[in-house]
Design a binder for these strands. Structure first.
Lengths: 191, 191
DNA sequence: AACTGACCAAATGGCCACTTTGGTCACTCA
DNA sequence: TGAGTGACCAAAGTGGCCATTTGGTCAGTT
């Protein structure tokens, strides 16, 4: 033991954040879980927020990787974006830490958690924007403002996946893909 | 005086709700403003919530009327929907009572206020859905699910008008109309 | 030199007396 | 005599106080 204390701390913190959220995780708790004196944490991380940020950076990287993993180079832009978005939103919905943070944002509104979730959204937007830019360059879709288009795509996906079902029958992934094809992509495809 | 006590009460309550919100308006307050004994309110309205509901029903009717007012029978479906939506969202943004209620939902989350704002959203959705159904019947746009399409339109408008500018340059009404034309309606128009 | 945990100021949470509020109803008086 | 009233009530909400907890430090140990 005692070789990778830094990683031990990260693991312990991830576990605790996932289980209790940001606010309800105490540095004592993390220290105990990592079998480390509390002071040791502060030799690796300036404060609780930085420890948290490092974990989130890793989480975003994981998410991006998963999304990249379902991109098939030859396939249609629409299908690739759909798969990547479903992958990222599934991640957001199923990942234990993510779930806790979204709960915490809703119930308490911890500012640091808000920031972090904004960062996650921003990273999804960037991902889609890149795909849009590539698709435009390749002539797969009409020229358009990638920022706005990425924003519209994300907002629509989120509302269809998370908000629609608050008062209606949930939609399957296939239905969502079809809806998207019909309502949005049609207008941008070259024919 | 003393001929239209019911209306006096409604006026007083509207004034107070607009000024202080639902929670911070007391029945004593309303009674005093209406120059009426508190008990009298309860001969016309079962309770505070019903008094509130009656006011909101009126407000929704006003909003619908404004929206209907900008509909020009001969004009294109897209333009009519755009004008009606901008009208309703402007109403939502500028109407004193509406402003207070949205604030209250955000800051306190009074359940009754949440319900009422859901009702407002529902009424906007119904309005758009009707226009879509008519447009389909007339062959102005492709066949599609009016519920889903209305939902997508509303969500996109709201996010472009209210959320987009939280971290970016706000968009003008003309820009929004154009964005909508480009990204969404294009796919549904017959050609 | 790496690590620890007792220690500290500041923030938080629990408790409880006190106030406010929606709603009632015995009474007034036109 | 019935429409109108406002003192009254239970219940919910508020505020202030004090004990506890928490992020962060640092003198001391290994």
């Amino acid at each position: 033991m005692a070789v990778n204390r830094r990683q031990d701390i990260l693991n312990a913190a991830t576990q605790s954040f996932s289980l209790f959220g940001y606010k309800a995780t105490t540095m004592d708790q993390v220290a105990k879980l990592a079998s480390v004196g509390k002071g040791t944490i502060y030799t690796f991380f300036a404060n609780k927020e930085e420890l948290f940020n490092e974990i989130i950076t890793k989480l975003i990287a994981d998410m991006q990787q998963k999304a990249t993993g379902v991109i098939v180079p030859g396939e249609k832009f629409q299908d690739n974006v759909h798969h990547a978005l479903v992958e990222m939103l599934d991640f957001r919905r199923d990942h234990q830490l993510m779930i806790k943070l979204i709960q915490e944002q809703r119930d308490i509104g911890t500012p640091i958690v808000n920031n972090v979730l904004d960062k996650v959204e921003e990273s999804i937007l960037t991902f889609i924007r890149d795909k849009i830019e590539i698709a435009i360059q390749r002539g797969e879709i009409k020229k358009c403002d990638p920022d706005i288009f990425a924003y519209i795509i994300l907002v629509t996906y989120i509302s269809l996946i998370f908000d629609w079902e608050k008062s209606r029958e949930p939609l399957s992934k296939e239905e969502i893909a079809e809806i998207f094809q019909t309502y949005i992509f049609n207008g941008l495809s070259l024919r």
